[in-house]
């Protein structure tokens, strides 16, 4: 940041990042194994210095998570934070030859991408060309192929699979009442809010979007006036249109 953009602001020099465990690694088969996967991935995030962490629930390949599964995901973070001691050191893996070498490799890979994207005229141009999307899709496809060839092992799926699996875990059932309840709340809000204020706030948001201003203050105004998420998005769609993905 300081070399390329010449910033002197310390806050922009900080690399702050969030980590979420990998949804794609969760399996339907032998789902309790996912607790172990999440714990290892979360630990890796903490060892890498993450400031914010989301741990997936073990049943997310089966359904939306139950409270019980979500609680284990939270407890996993608390065990790492308060039982293991890894959070007592800023960089517990600093000086490890293997980790430092991998970090360097990753850094080189990132810089290589920066150069490619710069050559395309920046990230917006690269997205318009479908470059990052294609790279992500290629990587996802190669991963799937490696799984199917058995080169990428997934325990319980392509190795150590069981024909008669242990009893299923209970999953969350969401019935139609959630939908009807939300519709009722929405109707209620629509009848009690000041519809003139909503219309005004939405117009202001459109104007801000049209003039390419910061839309955040206008968005906050629409929320204060009780505009719905749908109305806010529609207002922005009116100005920006809808993004269409380039063909894969």
């Amino acid at each position: 940041m300081s070399e390329r953009f010449g910033t002197t602001n310390e806050r922009t020099l900080k690399l702050r990042f969030h980590t979420q465990t990998a949804g794609v690694s969760l399996t339907v088969q032998q789902p309790l194994n996912n607790i172990v996967r999440v714990a290892i991935q979360a630990l890796a995030g903490v060892l890498g210095g993450t400031q914010s962490l989301h741990t997936d629930a073990y049943d997310e390949a089966l359904a939306l998570p139950t409270d019980r599964a979500a609680l284990i995901a939270l407890r996993t973070q608390q065990i790492i934070a308060e039982e293991t001691g890894v959070a007592n050191t800023i960089d517990p893996l600093g000086g490890s030859y293997f980790i430092e070498a991998l970090t360097e490799k990753m850094e080189e890979g990132a810089l290589d991408y920066f150069r490619k994207i710069d050559a395309m005229g920046g990230m917006v141009a690269a997205i318009e060309k479908g470059f990052p999307q294609r790279e992500i899709q290629d990587s996802a496809y190669q991963y799937q192929k490696a799984v199917e060839r058995g080169e990428q092992v997934i325990v319980g799926v392509n190795k150590y699979a069981m024909t008669d699996e242990p009893a299923e875990v209970p999953t969350l059932v969401i019935d139609e009442s959630v939908r009807t309840h939300q519709i009722e709340r929405l109707e209620q809000t629509r009848t009690t809010r000041d519809s003139g204020a909503v219309a005004n706030a939405l117009e202001k948001l459109k104007l801000a979007a049209h003039n390419e201003e910061n839309t955040m203050p206008a968005t906050i105004e629409t929320v204060r006036a009780y505009a719905t998420l749908g109305e806010i998005c529609s207002a922005l769609r009116d100005v920006y249109g809808v993004y269409e993905e380039p063909a894969f």
Binding site: T27, V28, A61, A63, E148, T171, V173
Partner: peptide, 27 residues
């Protein structure tokens, strides 16, 4: 996608030809 076991029979009776869960081979 993510489809609970309990929903599968009903979806099939409603005209879904087949349901493929996570872990299915593309083949």
């Amino acid at each position: 996608g993510i489809v609970p076991q309990e929903d599968i029979a009903k979806l099939k009776s409603q005209g879904i030809a087949e349901i493929f869960l996570p872990g299915t081979s593309t083949e």
